[in-house]
């Protein structure tokens, strides 16, 4: 009783799989849901008229003009490699240097651009400013910068929330992004 078992030819399976693979390769994009996260201030109307006086010493001013040139605390600057450390020193000054901030809660990093400033330059500087703050938070929470940002991304996990709260305690993220001036564009 030789029963012939029917067999499906599978030599072409690889070809079919390749075809499918090529289809998916071409039609799909890698999801990119990462970037620099900020919270916008409340709507312009709802805000009471600006009457808050911030002392000069508590402001770290960064200005960029329409040709992407930089003015830090009133001084033109080309090289921004030290900026991150400067911002950290400014925020954590705690009144030691009379020229710098009173305490982290009062310290504000003011970032003002022009309407003609390119997005690339804006991101570059926002990255430095946020980097300085994340460094401070990470240090206070006793984790690395990358770990802190990872925790901050997913606060639904209790362990992450704990790291986040520990890092943020007493140091608000005071980055003020001013409306761009009308010159340029």
């Amino acid at each position: 009783m030789a029963r012939t078992t029917p067999e499906i030819p599978n030599a072409s399976m690889a070809d079919i799989a390749f075809l499918l693979l090529t289809f998916f390769l071409v039609t799909t994009t890698m999801p990119n849901n990462s970037g620099l996260s900020i919270a916008l201030p409340p709507p312009p109307e709802a805000k009471p008229p600006e009457d808050v006086k911030i002392q000069e010493r508590n402001m770290f001013k960064i200005q960029v003009n329409s040709s992407d040139a930089l003015l830090i605390e009133g001084e033109p600057r080309e090289d921004i490699s030290n900026l991150r450390e400067e911002i950290k020193a400014f925020v954590l000054n705690n009144g030691r240097n009379p020229e710098s901030s009173d305490n982290p809660e009062k310290a504000v990093v003011s970032f003002k651009t022009d309407r003609g400033t390119s997005h690339k330059r804006f991101i570059e500087l926002l990255d430095v400013i946020q980097g300085a703050y994340y460094d401070i938070y990470a240090e206070q929470a006793g984790v690395t910068n990358a770990k802190f940002r990872e925790a901050a991304s997913d606060l639904a996990v209790p362990a992450n929330k704990e790291i986040y709260d520990k890092g943020r305690a007493g140091i608000p993220l005071n980055i003020s992004i001013a409306d761009p001036s009308k010159v340029g564009n």
């Binding site: 990119n32 997005h119 940002r149 991304s153 997913d154």
Partner: peptide
């Protein structure tokens, strides 16, 4: 042409 940065945070829920 998406710019590059170092201090990224991820959005978990698409």
């Amino acid at each position: 042409g998406i710019p590059r940065a170092t201090q990224l945070r991820k959005l978990m829920r698409k």
